[in-house]
């Protein structure tokens, strides 16, 4: 099992990359605005230039500026991409409307392939790749603790944040416990055959459930011992955002919007 490895690897990168100490507001602003623009770029012929631009920029930022291990980035990227290719082939072959470009008659039905379906799948491919790179930029450079500070600033309900922070605290503990239990089961031949595997999984989950309840009790005791009054307070260590960077990102966004708009006009023969 290696999920905990991968979770831990991404989490570690968020704390140790070269951009870890820079303002989370700047990073989040960049990632989210690029993400929204990438998803919002309308779907007609040449607009996938926008997602491609965003993808290249994010990749440069992740590998060049944040100095994230290229293998980690590649590993994160490659499997969603494989899935995406499959999904896009599926979209191209079975979706779309209008006049079919080719028709194959099968004994029970006619199978038509449409130009709009192929276009849609190409757009989806670039859109997802662009969006993934934005998400990876955020994930690999900004830690969950920093993100929770931002969420606190934009007044996300406190209960939600406190519970999330506690969940985050215990995810890694439990992933490790799970791995240990799973290894123990494997050593005792608990995974021979489907029935044994699913029974083993149920034992594991049941035990984990009991452990989490017990841990909840202990956590509550610990919190009470430290003067818990219904609120969980955390120390905010928040680097101020660089105004120049924010303006630069805003300019980049405006540039992208202009590119989209120009392409839009060109495509519909206005220019």
């Amino acid at each position: 099992m290696s999920h905990s490895d991968l979770y831990a690897e991404v989490d570690r990168s968020a704390y140790t990359n070269a951009l870890a100490k820079s303002s989370p507001i700047t990073k989040t602003f960049f990632a989210l605005s690029a993400l929204v623009l990438c998803v919002a770029a309308p779907t007609f012929v040449p607009t996938f230039i926008v997602p491609i631009l965003i993808f290249i920029l994010c990749t440069i930022l992740i590998l060049g500026i944040a100095k994230v291990n290229p293998r980690l980035y590649l590993n994160l990227l490659i499997y969603p991409t494989l899935m995406l290719v499959l999904s896009c082939i599926f979209l191209a072959l079975f979706f779309g409307t209008g006049d079919p470009i080719t028709q194959i008659s099968l004994p029970w039905t006619t199978w038509s392939i449409y130009k709009s379906g192929i276009l849609m799948s190409v757009h989806t491919f670039f859109r997802v790749e662009g969006a993934l790179s934005c998400l990876f930029f955020l994930v690999l450079t900004t830690s969950i603790t920093d993100l929770s500070l931002i969420l606190r600033r934009i007044h996300v309900p406190k209960v939600l944040l406190e519970i999330s922070l506690l969940i985050y605290r215990y995810i890694f503990v439990f992933l490790e416990v799970t791995e240990q239990m799973s290894t123990a089961q494997l050593m005792r031949l608990g995974k021979g055959g489907w029935l044994k595997r699913i029974r083993g999984l149920a034992l594991l989950a049941g035990n984990l459930f009991i452990r989490s309840l017990e841990q909840a009790e202990r956590t509550f005791t610990a919190m009470n011992a430290r003067g818990y009054d219904g609120n969980i307070r955390v120390l905010e260590d928040f680097p101020q955002p660089n105004k120049m960077m924010l303006i630069l990102i805003a300019l980049f966004n405006v540039l992208l919007i202009l590119v989209i708009y120009t392409l839009y006009l060109t495509n519909f023969g206005v220019l």
Partner: peptide
């Protein structure tokens, strides 16, 4: 007591969803 309890249940669900189900 509900706050830590809910949090630990959330962590439980997260870990469950990371398990491999045959």
């Amino acid at each position: 007591e509900a706050k830590p309890l809910l949090a630990l249940m959330g962590a439980f669900i997260f870990v469950i969803s990371a398990l491999k189900l045959p």
